[in-house]
Structure formats: structure tokens, C-alpha cells
């Protein structure tokens, strides 16, 4: 069965690369298990599934994967929520946004765009905004997963285009 990576990389079930992916079931299934663990975890530590999905859409857009962003955006169940919509769309946050959310978004933007510029002060900002240690780790794993997924899709896509 096609998964999100196949669809967004343009791999049809008949394609050679689709078959090659199936020869690495630990990569294919392992990626989906990771997706659950960061986007729909059992223990969310107070960062909701909707917030995680909105952040994923934002990060995918930031690295230039519009279709991946749209896929996450379409999963947002809480459609009337202006704050989540702004996050997912990659917009600036409304002035009413709380500092916890502002900190999540700032960190996702920074670590997606330029992880090399991250310092201790950036983790301290998260702590000052009220994030607990489990929340800091959960956020970091979510950010890193979306960046991983984006790279797998981008790489498979160009390889598939060669034909």
C-alpha cells in the first residue's frame, strides 16, 4: 500500500523505486512508527496533536515542500482555530498568541532553518516560556522528524524523475 512518502515523492506502485523501498521494510515501517511517535504520541506532554500537525505544516513549507505542508494542513481537525491556521500557513502569529506557543513556533522555525545557529540560550528561552524537559525533547524530535521526512521525499523525488 502506498504511504505518504510514496505519494509525495511521486512513486507509483509500478515504479522501480516503489519496489526498492519495499526491500527496506525497516525504513518504511520505521518512518511511520516515528511519525506516530512525534505527531500522534500516546504521551503528548501537553503539546496537542493539532499543534504538532500545525507545526509540521509550517516546517514543511519552510523547507520548500509545499505538498507535504498541504498534507499536514489537511489533517488539521480544528479548522476554526485561527492560531493553528496561522502556524500551519507559515504566517506571523496573532498578537494574542500565548508565550508557550510563541516559543514552540520560534524554535521550530530556528531549528528547521539553521540548526547550526542554535545555542544554549535557545533552550533557555523554551524553559523561560514554561516548557518542561519532556516538552523540550518532544518538540525537538517533532522538528527533527519533519526535517528528516522532507529530505527523504526530496531525494526520492529527484531520483524518480530521472526515470
Amino acid at each position: 500500500m502506498s504511504d505518504q512518502i510514496d505519494i509525495l515523492s511521486g512513486l507509483e506502485p509500478a515504479s522501480e523505486l516503489y519496489g526498492i523501498r519495499r526491500e527496506r521494510p525497516d525504513f518504511v515501517q520505521g518512518t511511520e512508527i516515528c511519525r506516530e511517535a512525534v505527531l500522534r504520541p500516546h504521551a503528548g506532554f501537553g503539546i496537542t496533536h493539532s499543534m504538532r500537525t500545525a507545526l509540521a505544516a509550517r516546517m514543511a513549507r519552510m523547507v520548500g515542500l509545499g505538498e507535504l505542508a498541504s498534507t499536514y494542513e489537511a489533517l488539521l481537525e480544528d479548522e476554526g482555530n485561527a492560531l493553528l491556521a496561522a502556524i500551519a500557513a507559515g504566517d506571523d502569529l496573532p498578537s494574542t498568541a500565548d508565550r508557550f506557543t510563541i516559543a514552540l513556533v520560534r524554535h521550530a522555525d530556528l531549528v528547521t532553518k539553521s540548526p547550526r545557529d542554535c545555542t544554549r540560550a535557545d533552550i533557555e528561552r523554551l524553559e523561560e516560556a514554561g516548557l518542561t524537559n519532556p516538552q523540550i525533547i518532544a518538540l525537538s524530535e517533532l522538528i527533527a522528524f519533519v526535517n528528516f521526512e522532507a529530505r527523504v521525499i526530496a531525494g526520492l523525488k529527484v531520483l524518480e524523475e530521472i526515470a
Binding site: E16, L17, I20, R21, E23, R24, F27, V111, P115, R116, C118, R120, D122, I123, I136, I137, S140, E141, I143, A144, F145, N147, F148, E149, R151, V152, G155, L156, L159
Partner: peptide, 27 residues
């Protein structure tokens, strides 16, 4: 081969992940 390139894509991508933990959460 294409299968080897798929492995390379994953190796680079999983370090896009690992670096985003190791370099941001400590030194």
C-alpha cells in the same frame, strides 16, 4: 544503483534528524 542511492538519501536525512537533536540540545 538506485537502491544504493535510496540508502544514501536515508543516511543523509537521518543526520538531518540526529544533528537537530545533538547540536541543539547540548554541546
Amino acid at each position: 544503483s538506485k537502491a544504493e542511492i535510496v540508502d544514501l538519501i536515508h543516511a543523509a536525512a537521518i543526520f538531518g534528524w540526529a544533528n537537530r537533536l545533538m547540536h541543539t540540545l547540548g554541546h
